[in-house]
Design a protein around this nucleic acid. Structure first.
Lengths: 240, 240
DNA sequence: CGTTTTGTGTAAGATTTTGTAACTATATGT
DNA sequence: ACATATAGTTACAAAATCTTACACAAAACG
């Protein structure tokens, strides 16, 4: 099963989320779900989304508002779901920048057709996306570090809270991946200060980071020790 | 269907609002409604309006007063609705700064014609608007901060009242999003004063803001602490 | 005007984060 | 294998931040 793209379903009805998720997963898409605007933002912060399927009727922030703010902040595809006969919503929805709409109830095959169509269009305009790399994120070994919001997400999508010091140190590693970094250099990068003669600060902090990042902190695979010199961050990093 | 603009109908008769809304929506406009002056301000605080269709007979604040205050505060288009034969009102209305007027009852087609005409004129003077970004608003993470009226709306659209100090601090953050700000700088931005040596003012005020803004004030996602330095406001902000 | 309410800064205690030091574990050279 | 250097781990103390309570000031109210 190849990865056709990442789709996010935003609907407060669990059953609909589950149903659609199951179906689209079977078609080779990676599918996330959220129940409201807040959840939607969380998912989008963690990993890039290609297409949002958005119910208009949501608790809290309503779907139209969400659609508009999505459009302003990104070039993600949007398909709007709306109750039967709410033609007004349809029109407004499309005005708000949705790429397509679908009245409920709908056939899954019908949804799939629209998903495909929007995805096709989106990929043809993908060139634009690159031109606006405003909010930088770094990805490595399934992990996701948002350098603007200072948040880290594990491969399973959970947020892992980092202290200021841990974040600064990890940033230093990520921005200088695949290079051996001395303790001196790390202290400079992460703390803007000089190292004293017996300064073990970095060692301790590396230990703390490893406990949060590594599967087996005793046998680290990402932050490796370079005996006699310092440390090196080994995973390939994709910066956004 | 493209977005021809945002129209706000202010009339205390629901039927009229609904009727006009449906019709104009069908013509490709985004349409909101309000029943009185208070409602009108709420809508305008939340999203920019291009044209207000205003009934002269309203409960509370009357239409003429509203029209005048609208004109003073913005360059929004105004069409006034007036009962039959109230010619005096017509004249006064136009003097007050309305762009057009329409006696009730009216045909929807007639209204549409005037809407189009006012919108056309408005867009030709749109250049001016840009040079006068007087009523600026900021949106972030679903929240909506009106910098002119000093009002804050939550993602669900509810108003959250801020004290002067809280508003000034939030403004400072919003206008300097995604940068680490020292307490000194924040005190300067928000209070125009210098920080004393043990000044914890900003800390306390940040705490108060977090209680109003954050889902979980203990684990803030918007106003993050940068230990040893200050704070950073992390959500992407779009200013209007 | 006096009274009440609301907002703001200060101070003190609680909590979290960080650095240091002591001890343990591991690697390296002989 | 042993000695030694280097790194990892843990516990604790110091520093920074967060929270709460309170006092005073300003504003709103009657």
């Amino acid at each position: 099963m190849n990865d056709n793209g990442h789709i996010l379903i935003v609907d407060d009805q669990r059953e609909i989320c589950d149903l659609v998720q199951e179906y689209l997963s079977g078609e080779g898409y990676r599918v996330s779900t959220a129940q409201d605007g807040t959840g939607m933002r969380k998912v989008m912060a963690q990993s890039p989304v290609d297409l949002v399927i958005l119910d208009l009727m949501l608790p809290g922030e309503d779907g139209l508002t969400l659609a508009r703010s999505l459009r302003q902040e990104s070039t993600v595809g949007i398909i709007i779901l709306t109750g039967r006969g709410e033609i007004v919503d349809r029109i407004i929805g499309l005005e708000m920048g949705a790429d397509d709409y679908l009245p409920k109830p709908f056939h899954l095959r019908e949804l799939l057709a629209r998903v495909k169509s929007v995805m096709r269009r989106a990929s043809s305009t993908a060139a634009d996306k690159q031109s606006t790399p405003s909010r930088s994120k770094a990805r490595f070994a399934g992990w996701n570090l948002d350098l603007s919001s200072r948040e880290l997400f594990s491969p399973s999508g959970k947020e892992v809270r980092l202290t200021t010091g841990e974040f600064d140190l990890l940033s230093a590693f990520v921005n200088n991946a695949n290079q051996v970094l001395t303790r001196d250099r790390l202290l400079d990068l992460a703390r803007n200060r000089e190292a004293g003669p017996f300064d073990r600060t970095i060692d301790v902090q590396v230990g703390r980071l490893r406990r949060k990042l590594e599967d087996d902190p005793q046998r680290p695979t990402m932050i490796k020790t370079v005996r006699g010199t310092g440390y090196i961050f080994t995973p390939p990093v994709d910066v956004n």
